[in-house]
Simulated assay, not measured.
Amino acid sequence: MAEDASLFSLRDARASDMPYVDAYAYAEGMDVIPSEEGVRAAVNADDVPVGFLRIQRGRNGVAHVNPVVTCATWRGFGVGRALVEEALSREGELRLVARGASVPFYEALGFSPIPWEAVDLTVVDDCDGCEMREECCPRPMGKRLVEGNAG
């Protein structure tokens, strides 16, 4: 499938989007998202969410992606890429804990490994004690924009 950003647009999530957001999160084995705060939605032409990204600002002041999820039928259309790139342009720096299977996605966007200590503990506590940690192979990653260049 080819990337075609004209198939969707990005906007702040609304309360009415949360059933979709929670269903997409649940399908990936995640808990419900507590509110629309910090959530950007990718929506199709009918204004129905097809993916989302949630930013949490940790105590360290840095924006953390937790999580980014695309509806399975919309993968391959650039939804996740658009959400992450927009968040990076808005925030200037993003940190996250990638599931092992999603590491290549983030690497393709220019993210690189960072130390666990660089990720706010309020974000990584999802990994501590998780029954799926060994299967998931979480990896802390980050990217910072420098003078308008990705780096």
Rank of each mutant, 00 (worst) to 15 (best):
E93D: 02
G142W: 03
P140R: 07
E86C: 02
E107G: 08
G110Q: 10
D31P: 10
L145W: 01
M141Y: 04
W116M: 08
V97R: 03
G92S: 11
V39Q: 10
F77N: 09
G38R: 12
R11H: 03
A82H: 05
V97W: 01
G92F: 04
F52D: 05
P67V: 03
S35N: 11
C127P: 00
G61P: 07
L145P: 03
A41T: 13
A82N: 05
C137I: 00
M1R: 13
W74H: 08
Q56Y: 02
Y26L: 12
S16D: 14
D47H: 12
R95P: 03
D4I: 12
P104K: 06
D128V: 15
L109K: 09
A2E: 13
C136P: 07
G129P: 12
E135A: 15
V79L: 11
Q56T: 13
A108T: 08
N149H: 08
A2S: 14
V79E: 01
S102G: 08
G110L: 08
C136M: 10
G148P: 02
G29Y: 06
E36V: 05
F111D: 04
V48L: 12
G142P: 10
Y24V: 10
V123N: 01
F111Q: 05
W74G: 02
G61E: 04
D120C: 09
A150K: 13
G61T: 03
F52T: 04
W116P: 09
V84E: 08
G151H: 05
D128L: 15
P34K: 06
R57D: 03
A41C: 15
R99L: 14
F105H: 04
F8N: 09
I33V: 15
S6D: 12
E36Y: 05
V21K: 05
G110N: 07
R81E: 12
F52W: 03
E91D: 08
D4H: 10
A45T: 06
E147Q: 09
R90Y: 00
L7A: 14
A2W: 02
L53P: 09
V21M: 09
L94K: 04
A41W: 02
A25Y: 02
D31W: 01
M141P: 02
V123Y: 04
V69M: 09
L83T: 02
A27K: 10
S35R: 09
D17L: 03
G29A: 10
A42H: 10
N60T: 08
E107Y: 00
E28S: 15
G58F: 04
R90P: 01
S16W: 00
I114V: 15
L109A: 07
A2K: 14
N66F: 07
G100V: 05
D128N: 11
E135D: 13
R144C: 12
A72Y: 03
E131Q: 07
E117Y: 01
V68H: 04
D120H: 01
E93Y: 00
L94W: 01
V68P: 02
V119I: 15
R139A: 10
Q56D: 09
K143W: 00
V68A: 07
A23E: 13
A13S: 14
Y24E: 06
R57G: 02
L83S: 03
D31G: 13
H64S: 08
E86Y: 00
A150P: 14
V84G: 07
A150N: 12
L96T: 12
T122Y: 01
M132T: 10
